[in-house]
Design a protein around this nucleic acid. Structure first.
Lengths: 280, 280
DNA sequence: CCGCTGTGATACCCACCGGGTATTACGCTG
DNA sequence: CAGCGTAATACCCGGTGGGTATCACAGCGG
């Protein structure tokens, strides 16, 4: 059985993501004909049709969709192998967290007596899983139920309520507390839309956002509101007001790491975090 | 940044597992010099020394050990991509289970009204995780705490006590019940030793076993005993006697599947299994 | 209806590199 | 010091991955 090469997977993901041989080739830095040939060869070797090339364009078949999913995971695993090997000697551990989340908690973690040296990597919402999977980070701070924890081992750090972040000028900003029903259906403050994993946006009235800073800007301008864990209030501006949302589901801040990890660095850090939590 | 190719990972794992360039090359079906060259090139590209080639033989460095672990995972992910793509169209689902475990439960699962068509794959103890990871199977029956469930989503199927399997001729076989202390330290019936993930055996007085059938044989011959979940009694022979072990930890039979799975086949099967459990 | 445009497939060539054989270098051991 | 077992080096060759040029074809506008 001839195994696939990562080159083939990279080529296929490029085509599958762009649905265009020419642009995919450009992205890969090769010419279009070799790419066509490589994909055709891949289909022959797998014995499955991956793409429908009919009138005006390319579409994924069912098998193609499966391979796209699996290719991303496999390529992340290969990249992880390289990164983790390069960093094998480092005593330093890389922790990734969403920009602006859980400042105080993180501070306590880093100052814990038993904690090993830690390098902090900041990312945007929803990017932690990918960075853990591809070996860019050893451990992440994630939030249940916001983040997808599939494939990770976790340790609970804290549980907290959520607050609504509103423009200071808005009538609702004066309230002592709010309910989910009140904030989820404010006509002049539609909830912002985050990109899905594939980069596309769900439908809806709210503005499209991709980064926290852009979101903060939009709130300050009175264009949207959001509901976030209380500890994430760190990044609010003078133009923002935070109001507790009574019936919002509790958010659990968790330490997460690949369940396949056997790294002593990670184990030591998690142990330090757990004893810290016990002491608190 | 130049990515690694699966060929390089295959080559490295071969060398790392044999610790011998010549034999590794033979296993790979290539000559020794190109293999040496490929490994040297890999070390150059990663910028890390993977092997110590000093006096009389090869040893893994710390980085080498990391890469060996990661390579196995990455290669399994690539193989999984190929297998799952080939089987994308199949409506049939592949379920893997240890030979001889939980007959009755499995029977009920397969006969469940909502269950999709299922192909059964039998494997030896501890092999389920690998078969799930490399895409040979979609879902597995595993036993907590015996099996390593890292990286899998699970659904509990049943909880049960454990029994000791003894040679019928042994004095302990006449007892109504036993304790862990009694069975864990019987001088003439040392507990058998299973291979670790890397194929080596732990130290100890018991015989080395690799397959269930060999183990059954050894018990029948009066050379060892074992403690297993009550539902696994299916494979006992006339020469075997099962005696409940009161204080042995309870064993949970679980349905497990890769937490990255998004397959509707798997989802349907799990749903069927859960409703079945609820009905029982 | 015809050419234009934008697309992927084909044809063909070249150069690189992965793999082979032969040999060397080196360390241990008798 | 000779002999063996090992990995590294030297060198050559062929396959294949990549390039350019071109084709085939479908939609579409004039």
């Amino acid at each position: 059985m001839d195994d696939l090469e990562t080159r083939e997977l990279r080529y296929f993901t490029a085509v599958a993501e762009t649905l265009h041989f020419g642009r995919a080739a450009e992205r890969l830095g090769i010419a279009q004909p070799p790419l066509s040939r490589a994909i055709a060869q891949l289909e022959r070797r797998l014995g499955v049709q991956l793409l429908d090339r009919n009138r005006r364009g390319v579409a994924l078949t069912e098998a193609g969709r499966v391979l796209l999913r699996e290719s991303r995971l496999a390529l992340a695993a290969v990249a992880a192998a390289a990164r983790r090997t390069r960093r094998a000697g480092d005593s330093q551990l890389v922790l990734v967290t969403k920009a602006g989340a859980s400042h105080a908690l993180l501070q306590r973690l880093l100052n814990a007596p038993a904690a090993p040296p830690v390098e902090i990597l900041l990312c945007e919402v929803g990017e932690q899983a990918g960075l853990l999977r591809d070996g860019s980070a050893d451990v992440a701070i994630m939030h249940h139920p916001y983040d997808d924890l599939a494939g990770f081992d976790t340790e609970e750090l804290q549980v907290e309520g959520q607050v609504a972040i509103l423009p200071a000028a808005h009538p609702l900003a004066a309230r002592e507390a709010l309910t989910l029903a009140e904030v989820s259906d404010v006509p002049d403050l539609p909830i912002a839309r985050w990109p899905r994993l594939d980069g596309s946006y769900p439908d809806g009235p709210g503005p499209e956002v991709r980064t926290q800073s852009k979101l903060a800007q939009l709130v300050a301008l009175g264009r949207t509101l959001l509901v976030i864990p209380a500890s994430s209030r760190a990044w609010q501006w003078p133009e923002h007001v935070a109001v507790p949302v009574f019936d919002a589901p509790a958010v659990t801040t968790m330490l997460a790491w690949p369940s396949t990890s056997r790294s002593p660095k990670v184990a030591a850090f998690v142990r330090a975090a757990v004893t810290l939590r016990a002491a608190a």
